[in-house]
Write a protein that binds this DNA or RNA. Structure first.
Length: 489
RNA sequence: GCCCCCAUCGUCUAGUGGCCCAGGAUGCCAGGUUCUCAGCCUGGAGACUGGGGUUCAAAUCCCCAUGGGGGUACCA
């Protein structure tokens, strides 16, 4: 049985990079009929916050991923939160200590830091010099009597090279001689990251570790630990990093790219997921828009790219537009009402639906939909240039005639609108554009937007009259006919 | 400094020695359709980082250089 895990640390909201790692793990599990496990790595007490654990789970669910074992789901190898597994790590650390595979190190952090700096200054590798490896019992006692609390270091076994087969990169080889003994238990009794991952991956029977490339150089340490502990090593796959537009690392700008942000901007989760799919993996064929189910069927880690991908917001938007355009309107309304002005709550459902459907083409997210819907809720305020444009003879006559026509008609006249515009243009010897553009501008305050028919039917008979009247009044200098017209109502 | 990984159009990628004077998608430009925007249709510009090998043949294999990324923590 294939078992994979996503193991975030709850030190902040997850961003695109993390989410993509989760997604590829999930896909791998699904494709192979395996188990996807969520594990929370909160061994860094100072930086972890349980609020983020909740947020991470919310984000994953929002994106459409589920897990068979995890903090909330439970499972046979729990608990799935590292801070609740402390004694387990201690037991294994004890074992390593007894077997001589680890030893206490009494160096303080400031001493280590100092030596690191000094080494660097002399052009020497800044790694730990293994000086506590061979301390006698008497020396240990002496150090302890100074009040020093030891950390526990793993003793790198002598050997030249260590190699492993990465599912994405193929054979990766490392030189063990450049490694310093590394900490597996901190002085406060909590495990280091290396210790915790290896113990957990082993105990949770993880068969495939799929993680970011930033862990590639940790892998030899982990393999060493698996061997020392007597566990079989899992298979590894290291995913390429995702860089920002400028090629900067994504994680350092986590805030700007968190899943929460995209959710907040009103991107549809399926669009985001689809875009993440394309970051480092290609579904093949010509089709790039695909559902999670299709991705599950086609996904293969071995075909994931080795080189880092740049995040391209334009391509995200291209996909997001497609998804927004085809999304169920009822669902969209649920999502968008809280974002719209108060008045929206008073608008009848069908009208709201028509609004969203008219406005959504070309837009990538709900914030844009809200913005492009402004004209519907608020009467337009024209700028000077626009007013001047509408004040010249032709547009003014058009607007007045439209008003006049509307005045004599019932609500249902809206249905006749297309014919009416055509007739109006014909009578006045105008191009359709010369009728429609002024109308559009007068009605919405903008030269672009949904098709005019939709605008008019959305605004309704009374709405159109009100706006036209207001505008004509504003333009002023009306002839007698027009004034009479205005007086009538 | 040292170690590791990577390198095809602006971007995401296809390409696992001949099918590649390199294909697709996106973006960009031009034209068409259209009241506008979007869409759709048609067309266009746009890449194998460089240098050495290996081979009858290299984007594909090897070496070097260059560039990018990651690591080098009692962070994960």
């Amino acid at each position: 049985m294939i078992r994979v895990r996503f193991a975030p640390s709850p030190t902040g909201p997850i961003h695109l990079g993390n989410a993509r790692t989760a997604l590829f793990n999930w896909l791998f599990a699904r494709h192979n009929g395996g188990v996807f496990i969520l594990r929370i790595e909160d061994t860094d007490v100072t930086r972890s916050d349980p609020r983020y654990t909740q947020l991470i789970m919310d984000d994953l669910r929002w994106l459409g991923m589920d897990w068979q074992e995890g903090p909330d789901a439970g499972g046979p190898y729990g608990p799935y939160v590292q801070s609740q597994r402390l004694s387990t790590y201690q037991d294994f650390a004890e074992k390593l200590l007894e077997e001589g595979k680890a030893y206490p190190c009494y160096c303080t952090q400031s001493e280590l830091e100092e030596r690191r700096k000094a080494a660097l200054a002399r052009g020497r590798p800044p790694r730990y010099d293994n000086r506590c490896r061979n301390l006698s019992e008497a020396e240990k006692k002496a150090l302890e009597s100074q009040g020093r609390r030891p950390s526990l270091r793993f003793l790198i076994p002598p050997g030249e090279k260590l190699a492993f087969e990465d599912m994405i990169r193929g054979r990766c080889e490392f030189n063990l001689s450049v490694l310093g003994d590394f900490v597996i238990m901190k002085a406060d009794g909590t495990p280091s990251f290396h210790m915790a991952v290896v113990v957990d991956d082993a105990l949770m029977r993880i068969t495939h570790v799929i993680r970011g490339e930033d862990h590639l150089s940790n892998t030899p340490l982990h393999i060493l630990l698996f061997e020392a502990l007597g566990f079989p090593r899992p298979h590894y796959a290291h995913l390429p990093m995702i860089a920002g537009e400028e090629g900067d690392p994504l994680s350092k700008r986590a805030g700007a790219f968190s899943i929460q942000d995209y959710k907040g901007w009103g991107y549809l989760p399926e669009a985001l997921v689809n875009y993440m799919l394309l970051l480092g993996w290609s579904p093949g064929q010509k089709q790039e828009k695909l559902t999670l189910a299709e991705a599950v069927e086609r996904f293969d880690v071995r075909h994931v790219s080795k080189s880092p991908a740049h995040f391209d917001p334009k391509k995200l938007d291209w996909l997001a537009e497609k998804y927004l355009r085809q999304a169920d309107s009822e669902r969209l309304i649920e999502l968008i009402v809280p974002l719209l002005p108060e008045e929206a709550k008073k608008v009848e459902r069908p009208r709201l639906k028509a609004l969203v459907e008219a406005v959504r083409p070309g837009l990538a997210n709900l914030s844009q939909v809200v913005k492009e819907s402004e004209w519907f809720f608020k009467e337009p305020v024209l700028d000077e240039g626009q007013i001047t444009a509408l004040s010249s003879d032709k547009p003014r006559a058009v607007l007045a005639q439209v008003l006049e026509a509307l005045e004599g008609q019932e609500e249902s006249f809206i249905k006749e609108y297309n014919k009416f515009i055509k007739q109006l243009a014909e009578k006045g010897g105008l191009a359709p554009k010369e009728v429609m553009m002024p109308l559009r501008l007068a009605l919405t305050g903008s030269t672009h937007g949904p098709e005019l028919v939709a605008v008019i039917s959305l605004l309704g008979h009374e709405g159109c009259k009100r706006r036209l009247k207001k505008l004509l009044t504003q333009i002023g200098q009306l002839n007698k006919n027009e004034i009479n017209l205005l007086k009538e109502t």
